[in-house]
Design a binder for these strands. Structure first.
Lengths: 228, 228
DNA sequence: TCTATCATAATTGTTCACAATTTTTGGATT
DNA sequence: AATCCAAAAATTGTGAACAATTATGATAGA
């Protein structure tokens, strides 16, 4: 059951980024990580290389690894790529989704509503991302799924860097509208709504706003349970 | 000018795959590569990890790295992803392309014609792939460019595995048609033609045909010039 | 001749020590 | 105080030795 230290590091860091706990620019020191996850530095090194491949970590030679700091141009490119990929995903979803898939999406939507009602911002963000990833899974194209996983991660970084804080509440209702259209099997409507949804998210990004400060590493990745 | 051994290995292997010299299933032994590129095994290891991240190499624990062998389902997913991504790229191309870009594409097209006329199949394949990559560059979205780079690589693997050998000649004229539409700035036509083009390539793949044999490693990657 | 078993060889995986580079620290000087 | 410089510390990069696993091939028995 327990995975390799390398996978553990990758997933913990990705989760922390998706949850916007690890902010852009945070240094990911090899020693720190090897102590936090109580493993060898070699394994930390491999994990960081993997994360670099996902474009969520930048590697500066002789200076270490940092959570990537996407520029405004990067952000726009990521959003455009999302529109291209999620549009195709949604067409597949309309075609392939069965009642079980609808139920899965409905359940996620309900949780989103709940998290928002409870004011649990971190959970709401996580569930919102999850909604898109479930869509991708239902679309049944692993290539597109994997690209979207990376792109949503990079979106998290962008929102953490430039996002205005009071947004993201509107998003729930847009998810609901998309899901309605999916159940109606109304392809045109789904495409229209997912595109609008992604453009709304992008519009909520304020590149004029100053990048925000970052926290300390150890407090953001833990607590780590070491399997014995 | 001379790059790190790691980059060298990655690029040589990618080129060899794109040119269909390295076929699916070929073993990429660590020692062989370290001798061919006269470098440390550690660097070979990192290069193979990178290639694994690109999905062009499969890594079997304790058994080594092999050029990936995409299944029929993989192939279909790759082609669908290409349609999604290249469609968006082409829209950007219509919008952004300037005379210099047109010239670049025309030049590539002419070389393609020439290679086909001369019966130089390897060069024709390389230039055909290059046409799509130039389109991506002109589209001015590095995120989409990078995805397409990976997808064209995987396409090469698929064509090498399942492709019928007499195809790919028709492709040149389709490229010409696409470029014409781009210069006319006829977005609808460009989209229609690039989609048709990609579907033609996919249609030329024959999954019933038996996977083809693979060659020896050292003869396919060399000759390697070692910078002093 | 075919199969099974075991020793040997080859290959991959891991660890650790050392080298190279960067960052920090603590004066010394202006 | 502020700046500069050098020594020390910390961090990253590299390579080689060792361990673990898998492939190979020879031998014996059916």
């Amino acid at each position: 059951m327990s995975q390799s230290p390398e996978q553990q590091i990758v997933e913990h860091v990705l989760d922390a980024i998706a949850d916007q706990k690890l902010r852009a620019g945070t240094k990911l020191g090899e020693q720190s990580l090897s102590e936090i996850f109580s493993c060898n530095r070699t394994q930390v090194r491999r994990a960081l290389a993997t994360l670099t491949g996902y474009h969520v970590v930048e590697h500066l030679p002789n200076r270490g690894a940092y959570v990537a700091t996407p520029s405004e141009a990067d952000a726009r490119h990521v959003f455009e790529a999302r529109r291209a990929i999620e549009m195709t995903i949604c067409k597949n979803v309309v075609q392939f989704a069965n009642p079980a898939d609808h139920a899965r999406l409905r359940a996620n939507l309900a949780q989103e509503h709940e998290a928002n009602a409870a004011g649990n911002r971190a959970l709401a963000i996580r569930l919102s991302r999850q909604f898109h990833l479930i869509l991708a899974e239902v679309g049944r194209n692993p290539v597109l799924s994997q690209y979207l996983e990376e792109l949503t991660m990079r979106t998290s970084l962008v929102l953490g860097l430039y996002g205005s804080d009071q947004r993201s509440l509107c998003a729930v209702d847009e998810h609901a509208g998309i899901l309605d259209a999916i159940e109606r099997r109304d392809e045109a409507a789904v495409c229209r709504e997912i595109e609008a949804h992604l453009r709304h998210i992008e519009a909520a990004v304020d590149f004029a706003g100053a990048p925000k400060p970052r926290g300390a590493l150890s407090s953001l990745l833990g607590p780590i349970v070491i399997p014995t």
